[in-house]
Design a protein around this nucleic acid. Structure first.
Lengths: 198, 198
DNA sequence: CCTGCATATATCGAACTGATATAATCTGCA
DNA sequence: TGCAGATTATATCAGTTCGATATATGCAGG
């Protein structure tokens, strides 16, 4: 979803400044399915205000830099709902970690194992933190997405713990076969995408 | 991982044209953790050639448009390995589908359920297609990533099948509470990221 | 006191996305 | 046979996004 729509959504319940929106978007469950920086948010807000989808009021603060607090207009709300009713685009997932694993034949064995161990640690930290704030996620839709996110992390951790051994010994066979990819005639690349875009 | 590194990786085993690289990158297991278009690949190849990391040869074909076939140089190979040894950046995941679910209070109940059902269908199609070509994924690292990808899809499908009922009835309570997010003081937003970037 | 973190906004270049243009050939089907 | 549509092949372009950086103040901790 583009940053403008994300900003509209973030303004639904409460009026906020760009900074506050960014903070909210960095927290779960928002952070489980998107990712935006200031470089996108501020221009998005300026443009939304120009289009009349949000309204901004300059608020001078005593002990802080000035704030521009935005609120959703009726038009903005309609625009958001319209965007949500469109068929969703395909998921986008990019992972340097998985890329490194995929290329692990080129790398020292120990480096790869360390990578996996660090990943497991990070996943454990995330899972623990989620458990701590679990009780605070009450809205039904929030909770649904929160739980799905949790199951993603859990699944990945369990897989890595259970399958780490598979990369523990060097693989004499496939040292220099190149990037086989293993698959000759992959015809699954478009199944998810086409169904979504249809 | 940036497109240039991706291209280097794709050229590891076999010399290829930009078009062939794009095709390979669209197939599993590559497609499980990245996503690139022509608009990134062609400029990347031109630049890599300029930097001496790959070498290109113009090949006129009888019955086809001309091909530019590239091959990895020693420098390019070293560059790739160097990139892989860097600590991996954080994963990036964006999903319009999850965003719509998160906002589902604003949407007609039936629309949300249809969204979920279509998603389940798409996941089933993907899983089936993966099973078909499972036997062809032989290289150890490929297989590891392939299996992890498979478990992702399986996990999501099972979750949706098991939890669909939670969105079946309208939620009288949280109709207009706004975007609570449910979480007041989320301090988990940086756990995965910081560990990775460290 | 001084370092570093939080609040607050903003910009800029580099990179990426998605659509489009061009052109020939090959495939399926009526 | 003819014709539509997919495939092979490369490329560009506008619009977006990413990541780093700049600026400025306040507050907390050592």
């Amino acid at each position: 979803m583009d940053t403008r729509t994300l900003c509209l959504a973030a303004l639904l319940g409460r009026d906020s400044s760009g900074y506050e929106i960014k903070k909210r978007l960095d927290e779960p469950p928002f952070c489980h399915f998107q990712d935006t920086g200031f470089g996108s948010i501020y221009p998005a807000l300026t443009r939304l205000a120009g289009e009349g989808l949000i309204e901004g009021t300059e608020k001078a603060q005593e002990k802080r830099p000035d704030k521009r607090v935005f609120s959703l207009t009726e038009n903005g709300r309609a625009h958001l709902i319209d965007a949500l009713m469109q068929p969703p685009g395909p998921d986008r997932f990019r992972s340097d970690f998985l890329f490194s694993l995929f290329m692990s034949d080129l790398l020292p064995r120990q480096h790869v194992l360390t990578l996996i161990d660090q990943r497991i640690d990070a996943l454990n930290a995330t899972l623990e933190a989620m458990q701590e704030c679990e009780a605070k996620v009450t809205r039904r839709a929030s909770r649904f997405v929160f739980d799905l996110g949790h199951s993603f992390y859990l699944n990945e951790r369990d897989f890595l713990v259970a399958n780490r051994y598979r990369l523990e010994e060097s693989d004499a066979e496939s040292a220099e076969t190149g990037l086989d990819s293993g698959v000759e005639h992959g015809h699954l690349h478009d199944s998810l995408e086409s169904e979504n875009r249809a």
